[in-house]
Simulated assay, not measured.
Amino acid sequence: MLARRCQQWTAALVSLGLVALPMPAVAEQNLSCDSHGFKYRYCRADTDNRVELIRKHSLFDCREGRSWGYDRYGVWVDHGCSAEFRVGRDGHHDRNKAIGIGVAVLGLAALAAAANSRKQQAQQEAEGDVPAWAVGQFSGYDEQERVEVRLHILPGGGVTGSAGDHEFSGQWRNGQLDAGKQRFRVERSGSGFLATDVRDDRHRVSFRLASSGY
């Protein structure tokens, strides 16, 4: 059920990203605009607010803001300026922008999947299931009891083990480990975990992974 929800959330994020992708910009094109008799002239073109002077035809100076300029709907020239302009957006620029947005969407999808995985693990622990990293055989040394402790933890939460020559059985439930007559809070540490006695914080046992799986 949770895996299905994760797939649905990921699909929704990707769909949202596709909707957010920019519409194709105006194709780049060249436009000639000439100021005859030193008069003002307006040459219509869909510039998408992007214009670049690429070649001057007149002997007179073409200076942006003084003898030429543009707006969204065209290019104007004045004071004898005659030139060729590139208008519209570079398709390569827009492709890069689209790719960047697509990568961001995939990143969001990955974050959603990771968050769902953490939620699933928390739910498993709450229901008594053991997270994958805690399944297997572990060993540690109980300095307070001065014994070597070995544990075998099963996916369903069942625990068997030994403390020195004494064998015991127990249960993993809600992130806690019942081992014989003792109960420990469990915190992941490296490839193993740290078990802290719920009645005595000074009583701790560090377990290392001896063999994964069951």
Score class of each variant (00 low, 15 high):
Tyr214Met: 04
Glu28Asn: 04
Glu84Gln: 14
Pro24Ile: 00
Val159Gln: 03
Arg188Glu: 15
Trp76Phe: 09
Gly190Glu: 08
Val77Ala: 08
Asp61Ser: 15
Val77Gly: 10
Trp172Met: 08
Leu154Trp: 08
His152Val: 10
Ile99His: 04
Ala113His: 07
His92Asp: 12
Ala27Leu: 08
Asp61Phe: 11
Ser169Tyr: 02
Pro24Leu: 11
Asn30Arg: 14
Leu151Val: 08
Ser211Ala: 15
Gly157Phe: 13
Gly91Ser: 15
Tyr73Ala: 14
Ala126Arg: 14
Arg44His: 07
Ile153Asn: 04
Thr196Gly: 01
Arg204Glu: 15
Leu53Pro: 02
Val87His: 10
Ala27Phe: 01
Ser117Pro: 00
Leu108Pro: 01
Gly161Val: 03
Gly158Pro: 01
Leu16Gly: 15
Phe138His: 03
Gln182Ile: 13
Tyr70His: 14
Val147Ile: 07
Lys119Ser: 13
Val186Gly: 01
Pro131Met: 06
Arg199Val: 08
Asp201Arg: 14
Phe207Glu: 09
Ala113Ile: 07
Pro155His: 08
Ala25Gly: 15
Cys33Arg: 10
Leu177Ala: 01
Asp48Leu: 03
Gly17Gln: 08
Gly158His: 13
Gly17Thr: 06
Arg208Asp: 15
Arg66Pro: 00
Val77Cys: 11
Tyr42Ile: 00
Glu28Tyr: 00
Ala113Arg: 12
Arg183Pro: 02
Val205Asp: 10
Leu59Thr: 11
Gly37Met: 06
Pro155Thr: 05
Arg150Cys: 02
Lys56Ala: 14
Ser189Tyr: 08
Glu143Cys: 00
Arg199Pro: 00
Ala210Trp: 00
Gln120Arg: 11
Gln137Asp: 08
Glu84His: 01
Gly128Gln: 09
Leu59Ser: 14
